[in-house]
Design a protein around this nucleic acid. Structure first.
Length: 807
DNA sequence: GAGTTTGAAACT
DNA sequence: CAGTTTCAAACTC
């Protein structure tokens, strides 16, 4: 048979014959058919020539594309990976994810050789849709484009850098419902196949976010990665496993109880993206959303990086979308954390778990906020460095990089609150070191029953122990900060020896000061209103501070820096505003319209108000601005009669103003109709936050709203569900001076921690509190508690930042 | 990595 | 509710 094509160049013949599909189509047909070999031979030869031409074209294109691609270095992983990140927006897809085995060990292919195969189309964007640097047609795009060609498989093989795995994967019917059971997957028996399905509703709101910047695309879509990942890199095996694990973990961490559906049921996720409570994510959304997003972002970095490293190529023959579809509204915090956790711990992870975990994927929530993704991208590099270079991470910890917990339970079968996974309402993940674990989908009934028993004793046993308040800022380096006082332990600790300065203390661990509920002895985890919350001042050793700095990313009250050099850095600022009435949305709209570049959208209930755009410069290099409100803002405030409260130091920041005071300051910005007085009763509370939209956004604005404006510059508001709590807390804030605790002498009521709440409450019940979230763009100069009044960086904050940045 | 310390959870 | 035990995380070496 091959003799008929002697004239075909060896390479081309290889291309043809090496492909099972091609072989079947071409050679087999030839061999079995034609009584007129000459004609058939000619025809086939012509076909071969045609193929050859196409191959050459493809090769040329690929070379061109390759040259245009930046090197796959961690430092610039962000932009690159975005194209690699598959997005699952469509109906359930089956994925095969054979582990990288095609490349011989020891082969030294550059990272771009790594192949990430996704049947999803997210990774392959239309070339025309691309814009900006590095947006020349990437290999994945090329691959996608080729997919439309009848000879794609052949052509793909012509590309030395295209993994044969990619082609194989490509050949697999992307629509196979279950690759594990499919014949296609059987063909890949030599490989480890991971089948991941996306909930049918995973594609909801796919079009909600029309387009994103390249970097953001990466971060926004990566979390949605649910497809199999092929890694043909040299160390691709492990990388692939990590990625696969990533997906699995996302499933395994779904708490059946809170997810509202059984992990095994395959029921359709709610789509709300809400997850079970945990210390980190159970905080009020107003605060938690921002913090968690950040946390997830950083935690997710490692995973992203590895993903990126592991995958340069992504082929999706089905992809025909010109913009990256996303599942924009899910909070996805837990999932993200789990992902990160996996990424971090993959090196020591257990062997791939059984298909049970994979089955859980059927019910996974695969939603992620665009914000989350954006944050991911911004922190990608930092997280990478963090996860890869920090020797401290070697230390055994129950908290992985992303904050996802993993346990080491030996006797409790992970069915007691001792188990952090169980306590967090999550199934144990594969990287848990637990023994005889029953906290998994296989024992769902047991888990549920056990939980019920525990809850019967303590209804809030699985609820977050931390009451988190909304107190986030951007620090001098653009990192997000939250004063530790922004939250508190609901129950309080009972430390006797650690002085609440070690992670034995749940308050300390949660980065909140001990409160009235604590029964600790010799507590030093307190606030001095005149001082920053600095662990070192309380005797915490340097390493601990450093560790804590690392771990602060695990908590809502975190203060971590971004890489100032990272242009993709997205800051989060949250400014509570109080409007006299919803009519002042127009004021805000005008305010916003006075600045440009940022598109704002306000909405009251179902009423949308496009308020134009605004832009506040943020100068990372000018710490002095840290305690200054953007002049523009002042101007705008004055112009628009958006007067801060009379007691607000907003416009009169004094040198003695602590960072937290500034927190207060900004927290107390009230938008009133020029009088400076805050109306009571009817004043809806608004908060303008540079946080990314989360589920709340989805719930409030809905898909259409989000579609209506640039996702990169998004202003939104959300119902402030925590308002009652805030009010309640504010009423108790005066009780922060611990009376019963031996530490009462040390404990100083941090009125600032609640001042913003009081301020809010000053206007009376906030029945219609709203949160306005501004896009994650530099709107304000560095503010927040991490910068003291003298313009210098807050000690604790800087420590944390340094700790992060140094990594 | 093993052993110790610690404090929450569980138990009585 | 208090005291004790169990447990696993945090920590130290």
């Amino acid at each position: 048979m091959s003799s008929k094509f002697r004239s075909v160049p060896d390479q081309l013949w290889f291309l043809i014959s090496d492909s099972p599909e091609t072989s079947n189509v071409n050679t087999t047909a030839i061999a079995t058919s034609s009584p007129e070999p000459d004609i058939n031979e000619l025809v086939e030869f012509l076909r071969v020539l045609q193929i050859a031409l196409i191959c050459l074209r493809v090769l040329s294109c690929y070379i061109s594309c390759k040259d245009s691609l930046p090197p796959m270095m961690p430092g610039n992983a962000t932009n690159e990976a975005q194209d690699q990140l598959p997005v699952f927006n469509s109906p359930p897809l089956a994925f095969t994810s054979p582990y990288a085995t095609s490349l011989p060990n020891g082969s030294q292919h550059p990272r771009p050789n790594s192949t990430e195969i996704s049947l999803n189309d997210g990774m392959c964007r239309d070339k025309n849709a691309a814009g900006g640097p590095g947006e020349s047609e990437t290999v994945p795009q090329l691959c996608r484009r080729l997919s439309t060609d009848a000879y794609t498989d052949k052509y793909t093989r012509t590309q030395p850098r295209l993994s044969s795995e990619c082609v194989d994967q490509y050949l697999v019917d992307p629509f196979a419902v279950d690759s594990v059971n499919s014949a296609d997957s059987a063909n890949l028996s030599s490989k480890q196949i991971k089948n991941i399905q996306v909930p049918e509703d995973s594609g909801e709101n796919v079009e909600a976010i029309p387009h994103y910047k390249p970097v953001e695309n990466l971060t926004m879509h990566y979390p949605e990665l649910t497809g199999a990942v092929l890694d043909t890199d040299l160390d691709g095996t492990s990388r692939t496993r990590e990625l696969v694990t990533f997906h699995k973990s996302k499933t395994t961490l779904i708490p059946p109880r809170y997810s509202g559906y059984s992990p095994l049921s395959g029921s359709k996720p709610s789509g709300s993206g809400l997850h079970l409570p945990s210390i980190v994510n159970d905080v009020p959304r107003a605060a938690g959303a921002t913090a968690n997003v950040k946390l997830e972002a950083e935690a997710y970095i490692g995973g992203l990086h590895r993903m990126k490293s592991a995958s340069l190529l992504s082929c999706n023959p089905l992809e025909n979308m010109k913009s990256l579809p996303v599942l924009p509204y899910a909070v996805g915090t837990d999932s993200v954390r789990s992902k990160l956790s996996i990424a971090e711990s993959s090196s020591s992870s257990k062997p791939p778990q059984s298909t049970e975990s994979l089955n859980m994927l059927n019910s996974m929530e695969r939603q992620e906020t665009p914000i989350d993704k954006r944050k991911f991208s911004s922190d990608l590099v930092d997280g990478l460095e963090y996860s890869q270079s920090s020797p401290k991470k070697k230390r055994k910890t129950t908290l992985s990089l992303n904050g996802a917990k993993h346990c080491n339970c030996k006797k409790t079968k992970c069915l007691k609150l001792y188990c952090q996974c169980f306590s967090a309402g999550k199934y144990c993940a594969e990287f848990c070191a637990c023994q005889e674990c029953h906290n998994k989908a296989d024992y769902e009934d047991t888990v549920i029953k056990t939980r019920q028993v525990i809850e019967s004793r303590n209804p809030i046993a699985f609820a977050s122990k931390i009451e988190q308040h909304n107190n986030q800022f951007i620090n001098s380096e653009g990192g997000t900060c939250a004063t530790p006082s922004s939250g508190r332990h609901k129950i309080g600790c009972n430390c006797k020896k650690s002085m609440c300065l070690k992670k034995y203390c749940e308050c300390f661990q949660a980065n909140v000061p001990c409160s009235t509920g604590c029964r600790c002895d010799g507590c030093k985890n307190v606030y001095d209103k005149n001082e920053e919350y600095d662990a070192t001042k309380h005797g915490v050793d340097k390493e601990m501070v450093s560790d804590r700095a690392d771990e602060r990313t695990f908590y809502p009250g975190s203060c971590h820096s971004h890489n100032p050099d990272d242009s993709t850095n997205h800051r989060m600022v949250e400014l509570p505003f109080q409007l006299v009435s919803s009519g002042y949305l127009q004021e805000l709209a005008i305010l916003a319209s006075n600045v440009d570049s940022t598109h704002m959208l306000l909405q009251t209930n179902n009423e949308e108000l496009n308020v134009g755009s605004y832009n506040w410069p943020l100068d990372d290099n000018n710490p002095g601005m840290a305690h200054q409100f953007p002049p523009r803002w002042d101007t705008l405030v004055n112009q628009r009669h958006l007067t801060p409260l009379s007691d607000s130091p907003l416009m009169s920041m004094t040198p003695s103003t602590s960072s937290r005071t500034r927190d207060l300051t900004y927290s107390q910005i009230h938008l009133t109709p020029g009088t400076g007085n805050v109306s009571s009763g009817v004043s809806p509370q608004w908060r303008i936050s540079l946080i990314t939209p989360t589920t709340e956004l989805n719930e409030i604005l809905g898909t259409e709203s989000l579609q209506s404006f640039n996702p990169d510059y998004r202003l939104y508001h959300t119902l402030e569900d925590d308002t009652p709590k805030m009010l309640k807390d504010s009423t108790t804030s005066t009780e922060n001076v611990k009376v019963s605790s031996p530490n009462q002498n040390h404990r100083v009521s941090p009125p600032e921690s609640h001042m913003h709440e009081l301020g809010s409450s000053s206007s009376g019940p906030l029945r219609s509190a709203r949160q306005i979230s501004l896009p994650s763009v530099p709107l304000f100069p560095p503010l927040g508690p991490c910068i003291d009044s003298k313009g210098s960086t807050d000690n604790s904050a800087s420590k944390f930042e340094n700790g992060n940045s140094s990594k």
